[in-house]
Design a protein around this nucleic acid. Structure first.
Length: 205
DNA sequence: TATTGGATCGCC
DNA sequence: GCGATCCAATAG
């Protein structure tokens, strides 16, 4: 397995958002591993992006966005959902990729990693649920994230990390406007949401 | 110190 | 369409 390192996340955010499609996100907690293949992302880029938490400058909540790439930015929305982002771009540049949906391990298509993971993880009992992590709030729940996971170094491979995954032929990347950012004026129509075409785990069509 | 509304979800 | 449910951000 190859854990993505700082260089991977240090590249421009729109690049990273696309490159994360097909990657495995892995969460180790309570003696188990919960993991899935990322199928949907969104980019939040710089202070000019009115949809981004960084738009009005650095605050206590968004501080990790202003730090080095490769760290998790986890925050609570609507009082109940923990959303997972990974800081991207050069150190100090406030940008991140939101993980909007992933394909839970048990719905994964054939790959060498499948056998390996089922041999080591604790998810074999679960059968099939393609909608289990089909939205950013559901990803947070599936991966058992809380604010304790804010500011983690995801290149260290401890409790949360990303691995090289795969993309099938035909799984082309679809670009769409981001979800839930109607307030962002000229930034609301930016095509900064990416997902794998025809994937049943994506949050919306 | 008080009010507002959100990078959502699931049910009515 | 709407309520849930917390808290950061902003106004007072």
């Amino acid at each position: 397995m190859k854990i993505y390192q700082t260089f991977f996340f240090s590249r421009p955010t729109l690049i990273v958002a696309r490159q994360l499609l097909g990657a495995f996100v892995v969460r180790r907690v309570g003696g188990r591993e919960y993991w899935g293949r990322v199928v949907e992302t969104e980019a939040y880029v710089g202070t000019k992006d009115k949809a981004s938490h960084a738009h009005k400058g650095q605050t206590k909540r968004n501080a990790v966005m202003f730090g080095p790439p490769g760290y998790s930015y986890v925050y609570l929305v609507y009082g109940m959902h923990h959303l997972l982002n990974i800081v991207t771009g050069p150190p100090g540049y406030p940008a991140a990729v939101l993980i909007r949906a992933c394909e839970p391990a048990f719905t994964e298509r054939p790959s060498p990693a499948r056998t390996y993971r089922f041999g080591t993880g604790g998810l074999a009992a679960i059968t099939n649920a393609p909608r289990l992590a089909s939205g950013p709030g559901k990803v947070g729940e599936y991966l058992r994230l809380t604010k304790k996971q804010n500011g983690l170094d995801v290149t260290a491979g401890r409790t949360l990390w990303f691995e090289k995954g795969y993309r099938l032929a035909g799984e082309t990347i679809v670009r769409r406007p981001r979800i839930g950012v109607d307030y962002a004026q000229e930034y609301k129509d930016k095509l900064w949401r990416f997902y794998l075409k025809n994937n049943p785990c994506v949050s919306k069509l």
